[in-house]
Amino acid sequence: MPHVTVEHGSGDNPVYQVGRKSFVFFRNPRPDAFDPETGERYADVIVFWVESEADKQALVQDEASPFFTTSHFDGHPSVLVRAGRIGELTVREVAELVQDAWLSRASARRAAAWLSAHPPRAGS
């Protein structure tokens, strides 16, 4: 995606930004995302911005999917995915997830230019 910079968070985790706005970042282990059997904090959580609450709910409603959220992210336009489960998604799904995250945070001008150069495919 164009105009992307990479910053590093407090745990040296990568934070991908467009126009100084984060759209994907690798989260430090936090108490709200943990293995329900062991209580161990997940060390591999990736946060993806989404366009709307409806988009978020569409991704997290299926408990079998790799997407989830926590109460920490209530009202926040993002979904969580464990890196250990990213392989459950196709390359196309991951690319679409990153593109949609970027589009949700890019300026209107940058988003329009991207969409003009990369029109959605039928069935997308």
Rank of each mutant, 00 (worst) to 15 (best):
V79P: 04
L80M: 14
A58N: 10
S116A: 14
R92F: 07
Q61I: 10
F48N: 03
S116L: 06
E88L: 13
A64Q: 14
V15G: 05
E88D: 15
S107A: 12
S107F: 08
K56G: 07
E40W: 06
P66F: 05
A43H: 11
V94M: 08
A112L: 11
T90C: 05
T90M: 06
R121P: 00
S71C: 00
V94K: 03
S124P: 01
D12Y: 07
G123S: 07
D55R: 10
E40P: 02
W102S: 06
A54D: 14
P2K: 15
V94Q: 05
M1C: 10
V81W: 01
V79W: 02
S71L: 04
G123F: 05
V79M: 02
I46T: 10
H118L: 04
S104L: 10
R41C: 04
A112R: 14
A58I: 06
A117W: 01
E37I: 08
Q99H: 02
F68W: 05
F23E: 08
V4M: 10
E63L: 11
T5F: 06
A108L: 12
S78H: 08
A106Y: 01
L59F: 06
E7C: 07
V6I: 15
A43M: 02
P29R: 00
A101W: 03
F25E: 11
P29K: 00
H76C: 12
P120G: 04
E88C: 08
E7M: 09
R110P: 00
R110W: 12
A106I: 03
D32F: 14
W114A: 04
A113E: 14
R109C: 00
G84A: 13
K21N: 14
S124M: 10
V81S: 02
Y16Q: 03
G87N: 06
E88R: 13
D35V: 05
V91F: 10
Y16H: 11
A106T: 02
E51C: 11
F34M: 02
V45P: 01
V15S: 11
E51A: 15
A122F: 01
F34R: 02
G84V: 04
S22W: 15
N28F: 00
V50S: 11
R105N: 08
V47G: 05
A64L: 12
L103T: 02
F23T: 05
D44G: 03
R110C: 03
F73P: 03
R92I: 09
R105M: 14
V81I: 07
F67H: 09
L115Y: 00
Y42D: 01
S52V: 06
F26S: 10
D35W: 09
P14M: 11
Y42M: 01
G19N: 14
F73S: 10
I86T: 11
F67W: 08
S65M: 04
A117H: 01
F34Y: 13
F68T: 03
R82H: 03
E37A: 15
F23R: 07
W49F: 15
T69E: 06
E63V: 12
Q61Y: 02
E93G: 07
A83Q: 11
D74R: 15
H76Y: 15
G87R: 02
S104M: 12
K21H: 14
L89H: 04
A95C: 12
V60T: 15
V15P: 00
P2L: 15
R85C: 06
E93R: 09
